Amino acid sequence: MENGAETIAQDEIIFRSKYPSVQVPEDLTLPEFVLSNAEPYLDKVAFVDALTGKGYNYGEVTRDIKRFANALRSLGLRKGRVVVVVLPNVAEYAVIALGIMAAGGVFSGANPNAHSSEIKKQVEAADAKLIVTDGSTYDKVKDLGLPVIIQGEDRVEGTIYWDELLEAADRATTGIVEEKVHQNDLCALPFSSGTTGLSKGVMLTHRNIVANLCSTLFSVGPELIGQVTILGLIPFFHIYGLTGICCASIRNKGRVVVMRRYELRAFMSALIIHQIMFAPVVPPIILELVKNPIVDEFDLTKLKLGSVMTAAAPLAPEILTEFEKKFPGVEVQEVMHNL
């Protein structure tokens, strides 16, 4: 019996898909991978705020990722150090996350609606060296003893302002330590929801996420490069929001319509005004789209929506049937995410 067990242990057992292996490009970091081939799209809008209309084109996204990376290096951020980002969905979110990664840092998104004690636990567990937040959330991080970058229009004494930091990085020409970032270096430290115990950080390398983007449903065919408009409602601090929405859209040269919070009228208006084609949502939103009479205030013939993706919980079959009747031609995809 022992000899048989030893034989099995020595044999390599590999289950292979019937489909060809996905080709993962070597040596590209995540920022390099998603921004590759961006030159023809520099004037195309990459992110737009659904409420204010403020947007960033690919030229600005590319420029500001580099500016923020240089700014972080000028502040002394070294490779492998963690930066915790405590922000709602904003048009600048992907620039911040990818700028951290481009500098060699490790992005760790935190829920801005979390209690200060929860944010403190994440900051301490990650051994973070810097925090990025906004004026409305600053009180939750002010006593953590770390430098704080404030994004947005608010001004808080004793903090570093996002806009001024980028401008200073433009002027800085000396004293910046630039360390080579490799594909197997850590780039993200998302924290689980704690379903099976305490919340835990998950160490992801550039290669992990690049490989994921090469193999997921968020990849599109060549005919749709530069053509897809996606709803950015799923929280970007969640790895699904950052990878599946932000990074995949940049890779596909699509446009993300950013929403900070869900409200049905604003949601319906965004779908129609911005001609959203793909909307990752959660089952309660599907339920409201089926049941709430507010939806009937809108001309559904103006929708350009081709598909919705639901995650986080199963969708009841009867709700799916009702949705398909009310929104004929809109494909419903269901996926499960545990992080």
Rank of each mutant, 00 (worst) to 15 (best):
K140I: 03
V332S: 05
G99T: 14
V90L: 04
F236C: 00
R265T: 14
I149R: 03
E6P: 07
H274K: 15
I119L: 10
T216E: 05
G226Q: 13
D11A: 15
L87C: 04
A313T: 06
H182F: 15
V83K: 04
L287S: 09
A114Q: 12
F47A: 00
L130I: 08
S74A: 15
I96Q: 01
A126Q: 06
G4P: 08
N70C: 07
L289W: 03
R73F: 00
T196L: 15
L339I: 10
A316L: 15
E12T: 14
P284Q: 06
A114G: 13
A94S: 12
N252T: 04
D27L: 13
G53L: 06
P283C: 14
P284R: 01
Y19R: 13
V148T: 13
Y41I: 03
D11V: 15
N208F: 01
E263M: 07
L233E: 00
E60F: 03
R63M: 04
S193R: 06
N338W: 06
V34K: 01
Q227I: 06
G329C: 09
V228K: 03
I272G: 05
M336D: 10
N70H: 13
V90W: 02
Q23A: 11
D49N: 11
G109N: 01
I286D: 01
F218C: 00
T195F: 09
V123S: 07
K142S: 14
H337K: 12
V106T: 12
V123L: 05
V330K: 00
G194T: 10
K140H: 06
L289A: 04
T159C: 11
T133Q: 03
T29I: 02
A46Y: 01
T173C: 14
N57I: 02
F327Q: 02
R261S: 12
E26H: 10
P190K: 06
Q333W: 06
T62L: 11
G232Q: 01
F278D: 00
Y58G: 01
A312V: 07
R81A: 12
C214V: 10
F68N: 08
E167P: 03
T137V: 12
K44E: 05
E178G: 09
L198N: 12
K66Y: 07
L189R: 03
A38F: 11
D139W: 07
R251I: 00
P20Y: 06
H274A: 11
E167H: 08
L75N: 02
D143C: 09
S17E: 08
I319P: 10
L217T: 03
V148Q: 02
E118C: 07
N111D: 14
K291H: 15
K253H: 02
V148C: 02
V148M: 05
K180V: 14
G201M: 07
G244C: 02
F327M: 05
A94Y: 01
G175V: 13
S199I: 05
G135D: 12
I294F: 08
E178S: 13
I150G: 04
P284M: 09
L233Q: 04
L339A: 05
D163N: 15
I286E: 02
V141P: 03
G76M: 09
V24T: 08
E60H: 07
K200Q: 11
A110H: 05
C246N: 02
Y138G: 11
E324D: 03
A94K: 02
H274L: 11
V34S: 00
V156K: 13
L271R: 03
E322Q: 12
L98F: 05
